[in-house]
Every structure is written in C-alpha cells, then in structure tokens.
Design a protein around this nucleic acid. Structure first.
Length: 518
DNA sequence: ATTAGGG
DNA sequence: CCCTAAT
C-alpha cells in the first residue's frame, strides 16, 4: 500500500505541472485593445505555427492530442475488466475524460467545416477569428477544451507582451501566464513567484487524497441498502427565512439612520474603537437589519461591516438565546466583528478597514489563497482586486460575484467527471485547491447552473439578440454537452461511494489513468 | 461538516 | 450568491 502510494507520488511529480488547467488565452469584446491585438496575432500565429511546431510545441501538441488514445485504451481495458459485477464509479468517470478529449479533438472537430470551426471557436473563446487554417482552428479549440496548456499560444502571448520569454518552459505554468497575459509588466512578479508553492501544495493534496481514496476503497465493501436516493429528492420544510434579502432601497435609508440609532443606544464602546478603525456604517445594513428582526429589540449594530457572516451568524444565533436584551448582544457582536477583522482578514470584511492599518496581510492572503486573479481576460472585472473593495458607495455587495472562468468551469466539469456530482468537497479540495474562493457550495451551484444550461440549450439561436450573454462567459457547447452527458451518466450510476471493491490492478489503473492528466 | 434545494 | 434544512 505504502509503496504503491510512493510510486504514484513520484509518478505524479515526474509528470510536471500538476495544474493541468487550460491556458487558452481568452479575449473578448470587452477589452477592445487586447481584442484587436489578439486578432492581429491570430493571423500572425497562423504563419508562425510551422516554425514552432518544429521545435517546441510539436511534442507538447502531440502529447495533448495524440497521447490520449493510449490512455483511453488502457482505461477502457481496466474498466471492462472490472465493471462486470460491482461497478467502479471511479473507473467509469475517469475514462470519460480522455474519451471526451478524443471526441472533441478528433471526431467532432475533424468533421466540422471551417465555418463550423469558426463558430465553435467563437463559442469556446468568446471571440471571432479570421484564421482560415482548419488545423490551427482545430488545435486551438481542442486546446481550449482539453485543458492542455502546453501550446504555442502561451509562448506567443508572452512574446507579444514583451514579457520575459517563458516560452522555454515546456511545462507551462498556466496561472503565471494568465496573470501576465492580463497584467503584463508590473508587479506580477510577486504572484508568479508564489505559484510554485501552490503547485506543490496541489501535488501534496492530490497525492494524499489519493491515498485516502485508496484506503477507503479497500475498506468499504459493497453496500447497497440505501438505493432509493436519486429518485426522491430530499424533502425539506418550506424554508423560512429570517429576513428577506435586503433591497438597495432599504439600505440607502438605513445608511443614514444607523448612525443615529447607534448613538441613541449609547454604545459607548464604539467610540473607543473608532480611533483604531474608521467607522463604516454604510455597510452594516445587512447585519443590522438581520439583528433587528432577530432580536426584535431594534438594535442596530454598526461596525459589523459585512463580516463573513458564517461565523458571526452562529454567534448571533447563540447569543440570541442568552441575550434577549439587544445591547449586551450588540456589544458582544462588536467584539466578535473586531476579532474577525484581526484574525481573519478577508475581502468582505477587510477591505477598507484593513487598508487603514496595513497591507501585509493582503500579501499573505494572496499567497495562501493563490488567487489567480483575472485569469480570464474575457471576464475581467474592474474591481476584481480584493483590496479594491467598493469603498464609498453604500452598496456592499455580497461576495463580489466572481465570474466563472471557462477554465474554472472546465475544472469543475472535470472534477465532476472524476469524483461524481455531489462530492463537492472533494472536488473543491482537489480540482479547486488553488482557488480559495469557490466554496464547495459554489461548485454545486455552478454545476446546477451548468446543468440547466446544458439541458436548455436546445434553441441555439432564437431571438433575443446577442446582447446579454456576452457579459458572462459563453460556455462552449461541447462543454455543455459533456455536462449533460455526465449528468445522465451519473443519474444512472449514482456515485454511491464504496462502489469499488477493486482488485489491486484495477485500483492502480484508475490512479495511473488519472495521473495521466496531471 | 457537508450536501441538497429554494430564493 | 445566500440561506436554511437535512444528514
């Protein structure tokens, strides 16, 4: 067992970058300058390809496209062997990935006309292309869909931005490249230097996870007493909310009032605090109102500038029991809020307040979270910077709403294909280890949306001109198709854990297969 | 602590 | 996204 794990680990390490996420360079109409630049480059690239093909990208390309059939073969062999009695979900899901890639890369794309290729390209990258070269189109699309990152595009992008030539690296660090693609010259060095750390982390997590999975598989015999799920949805009490989602209107009004109410309540405790931390009343609406409705005592609590909520909320609830009296509770809450600020600096709460004191925490945060900001040019948002929280305006939004990147989506899809829909925590820990935002719930939600989209994509282009959906990333249809496929598949073979009482060889194959993508 | 669903 | 209920 242990030795096997060791082997796998080393294999993993040998495979180079564990981050197999895609590196397609997306650009869409929103950034017009880049758009134009890229457009021009498309043509340029077209002619450059032969050259690069000969040296760098030819092997990587062939690796990404041609190598997979072998993996696939190996995989289907193993699964055929063991699918007999008890089905191994792992094996099944794992096999679907290469299948998909091959499908995309060879079957689909090969049969498409140039026009169709153009459409697919547009769907995949969110922009048009004028390139006529069928091969080139197929490759780019396949790349975008396959998550393979070693391609000519990377080197070329960097070249265009006059960045240090990363082209030498056969294995590309996607995040670094993407960062640089967006924010070429300035302080990006900091972030890129941090990347190796994340890579290591990723690897370690993966390998340890693999161990865990393995042992679990062996320990669990087949059990199927509860096989009813999937049919009946979980029934739940008609959910009763504490308070309706605040409307902007309400917020405005309370923004001004809360000051007064605070003063009236004479929470002197605040004034002492206010020396250290600038008062932020505008943003306290939400919590305030919530407390208000909870306590019923009309308490208004400032300072709690949109705290992470998950933690404080618990406390609020607990406190409610013992402090029907609003003031005492309020005091405690304030303290809580302060604690949160100091110990858990995060975008939501931190922002402004932290800016006053010092910034080192932010750096640390960046390092820990390895937030690949602005990975995707096409979904670039101006206030994407965690530190650049919406300051003045009273519109403290929720979690800043990070648009899902195509690469994120694909990671998600891949994760679901590997671990099954529903194992969000697993997917979170593995596929999304480097994305600190994106909670498992986020993943779940996104998957739900993807599913919806994939099922309702029948009318491809009815009316409703292309005005709205340009804002968010247009999910490539192939991906949607895969989503649908996975959904169907998983409804048939519920990812009932245990699933595999694999024989040694089967388990090994599964793991090896998976590492093939890393 | 995680997951499913409703909002 | 957020929130609650269920597990």
């Amino acid at each position: 067992m242990l030795t096997k794990a060791k082997q796998e680990e080393s294999h993993l390490l040998a495979c180079g970058s564990p981050d197999h996420s895609s590196t397609y360079v997306l650009v869409d109409g929103q950034c017009s300058d880049q758009h134009d630049t890229l457009r021009g480059i498309d043509e340029k690239l077209q002619s450059e390809i032969p050259l690069q093909e000969s040296d760098l990208s030819s092997q990587s390309l062939s690796k990404s496209l041609n190598n997979q059939p072998s993996i696939h073969g190996e995989c289907s062999n193993s699964s055929n062997g063991l699918v007999e009695g008890q089905r191994s979900t792992s094996a099944v899901y794992t096999s679907s990935k290469p299948e998909f890639s091959r499908l995309m890369g060879e079957i689909c794309l090969d049969n498409l006309s140039i026009k169709e290729l153009h459409e697919t390209f547009k769907a995949t990258f969110g922009r048009e292309t004028t390139v006529k070269d069928k091969q080139w189109l197929k490759r780019r699309i396949a790349m975008g869909l396959t998550n393979s990152c070693d391609v000519s595009t990377s080197s070329f992008i960097i070249k265009d931005n006059k960045l240090v030539s990363k082209g030498g690296e056969g294995s590309c660090n996607k995040e670094a490249i993407e960062d640089q693609a967006v924010k070429p010259v300035d302080g990006s060095g900091k972030e890129s230097s941090l990347n190796p750390g994340s890579k290591m982390e990723d690897q370690q997590i993966v390998s340890s996870e693999r161990l865990r999975t393995c042992s679990k598989d062996y320990s669990c015999a087949d059990e199927d007493p509860l096989k009813e799920q999937r049919n009946a949805k979980r029934i739940r009490k008609p959910t009763r909310r504490y308070i309706e989602e605040l409307s902007e209107v309400e917020s405005k009004e309370h923004g001004g009032k809360s000051i007064a109410s605070v003063k009236n309540l004479g929470l002197g405790l605040m004034s002492s605090r206010s020396n250290t931390r600038p008062v932020r009343i505008a943003s306290s609406n939400r919590i305030t109102l919530r407390l208000d409705s909870l306590g019923g005592s009309g308490v208004q609590i400032p300072y709690v500038s949109r705290v992470r909520r998950s933690r404080p909320r618990k406390n609020v609830k607990a406190l409610m029991e013992f402090h029907p009296n609003g003031i005492g509770m309020a005091a405690k809450l304030v303290k809580e809020a302060v604690d949160v600020h100091s110990s858990e600096p995060n975008r939501e709460s931190g922002g402004i307040v932290l800016k006053a004191s010092s910034a080192p925490e932010q750096i640390q945060q960046q390092g820990q979270n390895m937030e690949p900001k602005n990975k995707d040019p096409s979904v670039y948002t101006p206030d994407d910077n965690p530190a650049t929280v919406r300051a003045v305006k009273g519109g403290v939004r929720r979690k800043h709403h990070r648009a899902w990147t195509l690469s994120e989506v694909m990671k998600l899809v891949e994760g679901v294909s590997k671990y099954g829909a529903g194992r969000w925590s697993e997917i979170k820990r593995l596929a999304f280890a480097s994305y600190s935002y994106r909670t498992s719930v986020d993943l779940k939600d996104k998957w739900r949306n993807l599913l919806k989209a994939s099922l309702a994509q029948t009318p491809p282009d009815s009316r409703m001109g292309a005005r709205k959906h340009a804002s968010s990333v247009p999910i490539p249809m192939p991906v949607l198709l895969r989503v649908r496929e996975l959904a169907e598949m998983q409804s048939q073979f519920p990812p009932n854990l245990s699933s595999s009482k694999l024989t040694g060889s089967a388990g090994r194959n599964v793991n090896e297969t998976r590492s093939g993508y890393l």
